[in-house]
Amino acid sequence: MSAITSFGEYWRYRELMYFLAWRDVKVRYKQATLGAAWAIIQPLFTMLTFTFFFGKLAGISSNGVPYPLFSFSGLVLWMYVSVTLGHAGNSLVNNSNLITKVYFPRLLLPASSAFGGLMDLAVSCVFLAAMMVHYQVQPSWAIMFAPLFVLEAVILVMGASMFLGAVNVKYRDVKYTIPFLIQIGLFVTPIIYPVSFIPERFRWLLNLNPLTGIIEGFRASLLGGTAIDWRLTAISWCLTLSVFALGYVYFRKTEETFADIV
């Protein structure tokens, strides 16, 4: 199947992707008693914890931005990435009843998870905006670049989900590694500390994590404090697109066997 015809196929099934994403969001909000508030509570409490331990006790600097705002702005995007990844990585296995009974482009499953997560992100961004008002942080014109980093996060999450989801169909123990990867990710990404916290000679290592550029760029475009590092952004986009390409190729190569082994 050529790339062109399959793109047409995805376009034809766009409504189903919307419905699958809508189902996930709806069910998530229905099951949790607090509903949409959950999207705020999770990063909020994480932020409060980090503010206490890192901001107050350890006294980590935050580029002149109030630490709660600094960490929350990183956490909203990080929560999107981690929750969606945990969800999307299992999206194929969890929907095995669909995969074995109906045809649709299998890519819709990780894709709908990635898009469904944007709902939570939107809710927590509203809260973030309220915090900015509270701390009287005025965004500059650079805020117009913020969507660029959100888009990058979506592409990265899609790529990783396609790969992990497809591997997870074949090897069922991969799902245990996802929470582990997420846990590590929180610390190897400058979410609760600024890049300047890391000694100069190790920084290149941090830059190999595509999330570094995403979080830094998102924060810089919203809060100012530092200018957007375009070199870092370029590196990060290259890495993100590579992850996406790898995930896509692996997914397309293995998707024909999903129904037989899922």
Binding site: K26, V27, K30, N97, L98, K101
Partner: peptide, 11 residues
Amino acid sequence: LEVGTGFHEEL
């Protein structure tokens, strides 16, 4: 191949 594929209990 099945009746009600994808039905979700909560919906």
